[in-house]
Nucleic acid binder design. Structure first.
Length: 344
DNA sequence: AACAGTCTCAACCGCCTCGAG
DNA sequence: TCTCGAGGCGGTTGAGACTGT
């Protein structure tokens, strides 16, 4: 037993990778495949630590990595999974095909975390910040300096909140706001069917919560299914322990399933169901909303350890979509006041 | 144009888990 | 059973880009 340590050695280069180094690494991996990272630097002619090579490959050079702006659906998935899983970036990234854990982590830290704080939501607990009397107004909180003009300018100067500064609730609710420099993140229009929370029975509250998420669930399901069904299709009926070994299937193989034959379900669910709710309402619990959704198998809590029955999942989704779009006795008031105040 | 402050994200660091020896 | 290295993961850093004055 005389293994040599991975990252000791003089003359190892650090810092940004050059294109030349990238070429060497790509070329080597194309020829020999991944793995054996300790030996790769030497064999590929790189003065880098094996660990550094692995990271460079996994986070940047790998051909199927998706880069660039996160979609609305991806944002929703990150937020929801973070609420239930915490900083488990690798777990979250598994639900986002072609995204890396590092990228998800960076996006959370630089965008989503701030946005939640701005809207008075504690990014750790995903519950309204206790000290925040008005969630629609940026407040001083952890990592947030209200003397920072940029925080105030964003809304006071623009006269409206950009989608990125919208409350999570609103961005989940088909709200469309004036947005000159960005493609709207949701194709839905500002619904005429705006609903308020009603403090009634727990069932009503659950329905409220579900309805709140309904407009985005379609998108989320589509996106999540990409990741989940790829794996379930691949796995089933494989035992769980085989799962991780077989999960490297390209999503393209299942694109027809994800995007055509079942797109109608997602479309149904994206339809004109929207509402707002009052974050001041101490009973609102985003984590609970997630639990509710998870309990109905709309999202898989951790596909890496779960084998999924595809038919069962589709039954659930179909059932839920029918439930969600059946608003014949939609029990909530319409109310645009909240966004009228904050978006105009 | 120059400078300062802020933001972004690639890359590093250190810890943890797992498995080989 | 114990030790140690590889690989994986989450937290943090800092260089470069961007923005405001």
């Amino acid at each position: 037993m005389s293994r040599k340590p991975c990252c000791v050695g003089e003359g190892l280069k650090k810092g940004a990778w050059t294109t030349e180094e990238d070429k060497k690494l790509i070329s080597y991996i194309h020829e020999h495949g991944e793995g054996g990272w300790r030996d790769i630097p030497q064999k590929a002619g790189l003065k880098r630590c094996g660990k550094s090579c692995r990271l460079r490959w996994a986070n940047y050079l790998k051909p199927d990595i998706k880069r660039g702006e996160f979609s609305y659906e991806e944002e929703q998935i990150i937020i929801m999974l973070h609420a239930s899983r915490g900083n488990k970036w690798s777990v979250i990234a598994r639900h986002l095909p072609r995204r890396t854990d590092n990228e998800v982590k960076n996006y959370w830290n630089t965008h989503l975390k701030k946005r939640l704080i701005d809207q008075g939501i504690d990014p750790l607990t995903h519950k309204p910040l206790a000290s925040n009397p008005n969630p629609a107004t940026p407040t001083t909180s952890e990592g947030q300096d209200d003397s920072n003009p940029s925080n105030l300018d964003e809304q006071s100067q623009s006269g409206s909140m950009s989608p990125k500064s919208l409350p999570i609730s609103s961005s989940s609710c088909n709200l469309q706001v004036n947005n000159s420099d960005e493609t709207p993140r949701n194709n839905g229009s500002l619904s005429s069917k705006k609903c308020c929370f009603k403090k009634s029975s727990s069932t009503s509250k659950l329905l409220n919560k579900v309805a709140t998420k309904a407009s985005s669930i379609g998108n989320m399901v589509s996106a999540s299914m990409e990741g989940s069904l790829i794996r379930s299709t691949t796995l089933s009926p494989c035992p769980n322990d085989v799962f991780s070994e077989t999960s490297q299937v390209q999503m393209d193989e299942f694109a027809p399933f994800s995007y055509s034959s079942d797109q109608h379900i997602a479309d149904y669910m994206k339809e004109d169901i929207s509402m707002d709710f009052d974050l001041n309402n101490s009973e609102y619990d985003f984590s609970q909303t997630l639990e509710d959704i998870y309990n109905h198998d709309l999202l898989l809590s951790d596909v890496s350890s779960t084998s999924v029955d595809e038919d069962n999942m589709m039954q659930n989704i179909t059932g839920w979509s029918n439930f969600l779009v059946d608003d014949s006795d939609f029990p909530y008031d319409t109310n645009l006041d909240f966004y009228d105040k904050n978006l105009v």
